[in-house]
């Protein structure tokens, strides 16, 4: 009792309470509810039923692997593309741009404050038949590229576009943690520019690459807007399936099962993510 009393009286614990209790009610509560519903018989709307694993069996035997497959595949492709695209920018921000890096950071972060929908709609205008890209090509060269919108590449483009900052910023931190003296030592030992990159910079900036990759991976895995706005009916991703199970099909238990699977994958990744970072160092560095 005495230990509990002392623990509760810590100022840190007391100040953590408002946010903690709120998230317990608003975050942990719904997740537990979803888990409970996943064991209820199909198409029931109360929790009082006899638990069953019927939903899990039906999800595994039905064709949901297709939407899971698309989500996983697009997540992997997005991650790889983003590593290639953002590494040079991150390198520049960590080592080259100097005082300009702050401005560039702000410029890259600002679009995050604009609704995803609006930004993706901008791509619709660009990719549309007779849209900005197609129209310009027709006007300038008489060429037509009309089939760009509502395709899988368009979805990938949308994901790369929306999640770029989430790969870039961890990379910048990762690269800026590589001490300049190590590179000089390697150069001193006769390493070429490429060897320095491969033997020193890349392995040492690996934590940043890993954190960015995991982050982008979970965000793309659960994404909805990109496939709906830029993909049209091209493919169905897992978040679409979850949404229709809950809304159109009115099958809460099935939607819950799909959510539980997605949440489990996400939680495993978040677990690895958090093991990699010391928050005090990442947030507190100035």
């Amino acid at each position: 009792m005495k230990i509990v009393a002392r623990w509760i009286r810590q100022p840190g614990f007391l100040t953590a309470l408002p946010v903690g209790i709120f998230l317990l009610i608003g975050f942990a509560g719904p997740l537990v509810l979803v888990l409970l519903y996943s064991f209820m018989p199909p198409k029931t709307f109360t929790l009082g039923q006899v638990p069953t694993i019927e939903n899990y069996i039906s999800v595994v035997t039905q064709s949901y692997y297709i939407s899971f497959g698309w989500s996983l595949a697009l997540a992997v492709v997005t991650v790889f593309l983003l590593i290639l695209i953002t590494y040079p920018v991150a390198y520049g921000m960590a080592k080259i741009f100097g005082k300009w890096a702050t401005l560039i950071t702000i410029l890259i972060a600002l679009p995050l404050l604009i609704s995803e929908n609006i930004r993706l709609f901008g791509w619709v205008l660009l990719l549309l038949k007779n849209g900005i890209i197609d129209g310009s090509l027709q006007y300038l060269f008489g060429l037509s590229l009309s089939g760009m919108l509502y395709t899988v590449p368009a979805i990938v483009l949308g994901m790369v576009y929306v999640y770029l900052p989430f790969m870039l910023f961890p990379l910048v931190i990762g690269i800026s943690m590589v001490p300049e003296s190590l590179k000089e030592a390697a150069r001193d030992l006769g390493a070429s520019r490429f060897q320095i990159f491969r033997e020193v910079e890349l392995p040492l900036s690996m934590p940043g690459i890993l954190i960015g990759s995991l982050l982008v991976f979970i965000l793309t895995l659960g994404s909805l807007a990109e496939s709906k706005i830029l993909g049209g009916q091209a493919i169905v991703m897992i978040a679409d399936d979850i949404e229709s199970a809950f809304t159109f099909a009115q099958n809460w238990p099935k939607g819950s099962v799909l959510s539980v699977i997605l949440i489990t994958i996400s939680l495993i990744i978040i677990y690895f993510l958090f093991r990699k970072i010391d928050l005090d160092r990442v947030v507190g560095r100035r």
Partner: peptide, 28 residues
């Protein structure tokens, strides 16, 4: 304080969580 490291991690979970799924769970 005791429990701070755990608090730091738990509190950040919602940020990294698929928002559509979170929205549906909240609807439920």
């Amino acid at each position: 304080w005791k429990g701070r490291k755990l608090y730091q991690r738990l509190i950040l979970l919602p940020i990294f969580f698929p928002q559509a799924v979170l929205g549906l769970a909240l609807l439920l």
